[in-house]
Amino acid sequence: MKIAVCMKRVPDTATRLSFASDGTSIDTSEVQWVISPYDEYAIEEALRIREQHGDGTVTVVCVGPESSTKELRKALGMGVDDAVLATSDEPLDPIQTARALAAILSKRGDDLILFGRQSVDSQGAQVGALVARLLGHPFVNDIAAMAVTDGMIRIEREVEGGREVIEGPLPVIVGADKSLNEPRYPKLKEIMLAKKKPIETVPCDGGAPSLETIALTPPPPRPEGRIIGEGPEAVEELVRVLREEAKVI
């Protein structure tokens, strides 16, 4: 089994954002970078499949600045075999990212490619689908369970009211959701080994964008709220304002 996992580094979700003076980006000087949380589920699932099958390789593929090697090392520390980084210092739109990933993946011929269901920064939930179309592979996002046997994949995904079961032959591209697994913490020994694992850097060619950024701004402030009161005695007034002021019920 040859498996690729596409990952992105993002600011830690506990960070308060500060905005850069160019008006189109965030100030990254104080940012704590992490592997996008859904991508960690994708990495963990790839490792489990490799372990269950007793052979195969797991490669992480990433588009980003040179400094992303730090997050790639974290993935290698979890047990991933090697990494490929398409270096780009410029921000890319989803189709540019997808083209850069597809350029790498099309030369590899993976049996299975995993993404996180979406990145937690731009939240477009689309790069996996775009790559799938560029490579001509089927794509299923938001997967809650999966199993691979004899070149076939069985997927469960959560939809309204339950789980849909989807089956078919590999190669397939999937987007991992949270309920898929519990990602492992790297062990010290693995972290030491990860330092020697290869990270290949390649040039990034994303082509022309579909979307051009004009501005990135803080959200408009919420109108000042108020405390209605304390305890159950305040409920009558709450119901009144919800009906008469907010008009939401």
Binding site: L17, I26, V120, S122, L211, T213, L216, T217, P220
Partner: peptide
Amino acid sequence: VYAGKAILRQKVV
């Protein structure tokens, strides 16, 4: 974006 911590304005080209 960032789950609403920021608003991104873009031109669709």
